[in-house]
Design a protein around this nucleic acid. Structure first.
Lengths: 200, 200
DNA sequence: AGCCTAAACGGACTTTACCCCGTTTGCTAT
DNA sequence: ATAGCAAACGGGGTAAAGTCCGTTTAGGCT
């Protein structure tokens, strides 16, 4: 049996990763996402620039890592939190709850999510596919009759994650309170889901 | 009456804009979007770097301009082309046709669209809002009964424009022929629209 | 304990987007 | 024509992302 252990990450590497992530969070809180620089991060963390790049590959890699951590926490709630977000409730109710929770999550993290985009890579992927899978499963449980559940789940996912981008794209100068957007998008999502899952 | 004419763009400026746009198209065709550099563009066009930035502000500005031109052409078809894409057909049929055409357009231009994103700005906006407005109008004509037509049109727009990103995010290495994606997304869109506009 | 190697580290170097400002040029009113 | 000026041009300068490679170190092995 070859490769019993591909020799995991070294202790100092792990330590430095944590340190960098934490420092990044500080810098974001202090100066805002777009003013976080690799040099600045390295210096504040007391490490070399080469180290930062070794750990995260690219600038957006840092934000991907950050987002990933937040994402994991979010999924935790979905997989084993209390209903209706967690398991145990009616599938349609869970879909609605999921959408609302997801919107709140995206609103809270949009700056980081945006910075996680990378011009050189296809697209970070990461979270959206998880979202899509969850939606797909719930749709199946809800017994929706449609030619292609896959296609529908792709579009619902987009309908869920996309509006935020559209919303931000148009706001420009005026920045209405997050609370309102949260509610508007949540209500729309609920209406959409209920209309689609309605049995004629 | 002040500002009779804010003194329009100078002739040489117009000429150079065209030239830069055309050169950009060449470079994209030759080396791919992500290898187009501002220096390279300026040199090939026989102009100074400063000029390029004066015209487009930022690197992504170039791609926004490029996309804008393509977009205008597309909207032309929608506003005064033959039905069902153009005016004259049943609203639901037009919605379906619009979605299919839009998907094809996005697939054809996704590389440029992606490059048009700008880390420093909210989001290019530009086209999506037009798309949304059109959808909004058609929904109104189709007499859909929903609490918020605005919310619905935002989400439908996202459902239309978003899947492409999701699709691209997951493909990674394998790149299935565009034709198939085109059809899959088109069919899904049609199913979604018909389900939503169906009168129970 | 001491050795050995793969992994991690650091920082100088390169590339590229973007800024600045002195110079040039198309327009318009005389 | 031509003078005046706002606008356009050019290219050197700066900052930040990303690369390279020589140096250091953790941690398994003898």
């Amino acid at each position: 049996m070859p490769f019993g252990k591909p020799r995991g990450e070294r202790a100092d590497a792990v330590r430095n990763r944590e340190r960098l992530l934490e420092t990044a969070r500080e810098l974001i809180a202090e100066y805002g996402v777009e003013h976080v620089t690799m040099d600045g991060l390295a210096e504040r963390a007391g490490l070399g620039k080469g180290t930062v790049f070794r750990r995260f590959g690219t600038r957006s890699g840092i934000f991907q890592a950050l987002l990933d951590a937040a994402e994991r926490q979010f999924q935790e709630q979905v997989l084993s939190g209390p209903p209706p977000l967690g398991p145990g409730a009616d599938p349609v109710a869970r879909l609605v709850a999921y959408g609302r929770a997801r919107i709140a999550f995206l609103l809270a993290n949009h700056a980081v999510a945006r910075a996680a985009l990378d011009r050189a890579q296809p697209i970070p992927a990461g979270d959206a596919s998880v979202s899509q899978l969850h939606i797909r499963v719930l749709l199946g449980q809800a017994d929706v009759r449609m030619p292609s559940l896959d296609g529908l789940s792709i579009q619902l996912t987009a309908a869920l994650e996309g509006p935020l981008l559209l919303y931000l794209s148009m706001s420009g100068s005026s920045v209405p309170p997050t609370r309102d957007v949260d509610r508007l998008l949540g209500d729309s999502w609920q209406a959409l889901v209920e209309r689609i899952t309605a049995t004629p």
